[in-house]
Amino acid sequence: MARQPGRPTVYDVAERAGVSIATVSFTFRQPDRVRESTRDAVLVAARELGYVPNASARGLAHGRTGALGLYSFDLLLAERQRGADEADRIRDGLPPDDVDPDAETVDPRAFPLYVDEVQRGFELECWQRDQALLLTSGTGSGASVTDVAGRVDGLALFPGPTHVDTLEQVARRIPVVAFSMPDVADGLHHVTVDNQGGTRDLVEHLVGVHGIRDLGFVGRLSTPDYAERFAGFAAALGDLGLPVPAEPLDPTDLGEPGRFAALTDLLDADRLPRALVCASDQIALAVLDLLAARGVPVPERVVVTGFDGILAGRLARPTLTTVRQPMARMGRLAVEILVRHAGGAGGDRESHRLPTRLVPRQSCGCSPA
């Protein structure tokens, strides 16, 4: 089969990495079958050449798949991998490590639930445009993302562990929309929300309406959205003449063990602040569970707020005060961008920061909204 001039192929990658084309194929499609050092060599060669595998192009002479992709990160894949590792340990005669990947103790709130609502907007816009859609998830490895990119004409994805070099490489071939990621000169299109402004509105409401002057922030700042929300939290406190913390009160990550260690210590010492401003609704819902288990009334003793506006916040008891981001609109906008830029005809990259809306409810002492 004749190669397209100027376009790197699997043969080019194999030659540069010093491996067979079968090894290149396995690296992108079944990376667990390739030794780590070999896999790294193949990925480096692919990145240097600007190669992205295109599974659909074999049957499409025009080089278009007719589909858009939406990629998210399955946070329980790590649990399933540990389960697979346990099977290997048993096979090798080693003691198991007591990990059950299907255990009901896995907290579903470790998943980014706002992804569901963004995805719904993405799906609705594709449906209205009669646009094919590929939904997929993975661990965020470079191989898994580039493999998906080879199957679609445009790709949207959520924040995760994928290295920016991989995304830049993919963006040279197809348009890529990044949700809720820092807008830097990376060749990607960006859709995010006014995280700082939304958190400012929330803090001003707690201080101005409820007279609260003792507030703490809960959430780890390694997530870009959370870092922006903390920046808005700190700026609002400073503008209101209140003490500005240098870091969160509790840097909890729901996806990791040992969460809420700082809050638990404060509970034990009866030193909780009057309000806990959580980086997301998911964190806030988990905080409500923690306080309920310890008999701490909300909002009478402690006010708890979130950010995102997911449906679960309306169903909580008390209902959750939050900052609503327009998640469905984010998904729809991503489709519009990908369609505009499909085939490289859309011009310069786009960056959109959508407004947020404060939604006061019972958890801060307001009536349900």
Score class of each variant (00 low, 15 high):
Thr356Ser: 08
Arg317Met: 09
Ala236Thr: 07
Arg129Phe: 07
His189Asp: 00
Asp85Ser: 11
Val298Glu: 01
Cys278Ala: 06
Arg151Trp: 07
Glu117Phe: 09
Gly255His: 12
Thr252Lys: 11
His341Ser: 03
Pro299Tyr: 03
Arg82Ala: 04
Gln119Arg: 15
Pro101Ile: 03
Ala328Glu: 14
Phe307Gly: 00
Asp130Met: 14
Ala41Arg: 15
Ser56Met: 13
Leu188Asn: 03
Tyr114His: 08
Leu338Asp: 00
Pro96Tyr: 08
Leu215Glu: 02
Gly216Gln: 05
Thr264Ser: 07
Asp308Arg: 03
Leu68Ser: 00
Pro360Ala: 05
Glu228Asn: 13
Phe307Arg: 03
Asp97Met: 13
Pro297Leu: 01
Gly211Tyr: 11
Val42Lys: 01
Gly59Asp: 05
Val176Leu: 08
Met330Leu: 08
Ala2Phe: 14
Pro96Ala: 09
Ala227His: 08
Arg3Lys: 14
Arg91Met: 15
Arg353Phe: 13
Arg173Ala: 15
Leu288Phe: 02
Arg317Gly: 13
His62Gln: 14
Gly313Asp: 02
Leu254Glu: 02
Asp183Arg: 11
Arg220Leu: 13
Ala14Ser: 04
Leu135Tyr: 14
Ser25Thr: 12
Ser20Asn: 07
Glu204Arg: 11
Val148Ile: 11
Asp100Asn: 11
Gln282Ser: 08
Val303Arg: 10
Asp32Phe: 12
Tyr114Asn: 05
Val148Cys: 01
Gly309Asp: 06
Ala41Pro: 05
Leu291Cys: 00
Tyr51Lys: 01
Gln131Leu: 14
Phe260Thr: 01
Val42Gln: 02
Ile21Thr: 15
Leu155Gln: 00
Gly232Asp: 05
Gly121Ile: 01
Pro31Thr: 06
Ala227Arg: 13
Pro182Glu: 06
Glu204Tyr: 09
Ser144Gly: 15
Cys364Ala: 01
Ser20Gly: 11
Pro96Thr: 07
Phe122Ala: 02
Arg82Cys: 00
Ser180Tyr: 13
Phe217Glu: 00
Thr223Tyr: 15
Arg317Trp: 10
Ser141Trp: 04
Arg274Gly: 03
Leu285Cys: 01
Thr192Gly: 04
Arg129Gly: 05
Thr264Lys: 07
Gly309Ile: 06
Pro297Ile: 04
Glu350Gly: 06
Ile90Pro: 08
Leu157Lys: 04
Ile174Pro: 00
Glu336Met: 02
Glu228Ser: 10
Ala328Asn: 09
Gly232Lys: 09
Glu48Thr: 09
Phe26Ile: 10
Thr356Phe: 06
Thr264Phe: 06
Ala275Met: 11
Leu354Ile: 10
Ala312Ile: 05
Arg332Asn: 00
Gly255Met: 10
Ala234Leu: 09
Ala231Asn: 15
Leu290Trp: 05
Pro101Gln: 03
Gly241Met: 12
Leu202Lys: 01
Arg361Leu: 01
Ile174Glu: 01
Phe73Val: 13
Phe230Ala: 07
Gly255Trp: 09
Val164Gly: 12
Arg173Trp: 15
Arg91Gln: 15
Arg89Ser: 13
Gly344Pro: 04
His163Phe: 11
Arg80Pro: 01
Leu134Ser: 10
Glu336Asn: 03
Gly198Lys: 03
Met181Lys: 11
Glu123Phe: 05
Arg271His: 09
Val191Arg: 02
Gly219His: 04
Leu77Arg: 10
His210Ser: 07
